[in-house]
Design a protein around this nucleic acid. Sequence first.
DNA 1: ATTCTCACA
DNA 2: TGTGAGAA
Length: 115
Amino acid sequence: MTEPTNRKQAEGGPLQDDDAPFYTIGQVSALLGIPPAALRRLDDQDIVSPERSDGGQRRYSRLEVEQLREVLDLTDEGVTLAGVRKVLALRRRVESLEDELAGLRGRDEQQTSSA
DNA sequence: ATTCTCACA
DNA sequence: TGTGAGAA
């Protein structure tokens, strides 16, 4: 294996490895090449809001860093923060609809196979 | 040394 | 969006 396969399989919630490692705002800003102030803006605008630890400092997870990359792609293309928020809302909407569809599909398979 | 909030241009 | 003051 060339990659650290430490991925959990069946976890009972949003408590995965991608949510565990927390980066400081400084690390993330260096990693993404954007000023800390920009990260704080994103948090204030409810686009990517990291958890806070002890003294109220932002702690970014891997997942949030990835979300940040997506946001940067959009803003680089000229999408405003308000627009990004809408894109994110639509993205969540699609996910929930996909889940709902998966559920309906499962129910339908029961009927179809017993018909 | 870092990060936080708030304010200003 | 970037910068700086002042506190933690």
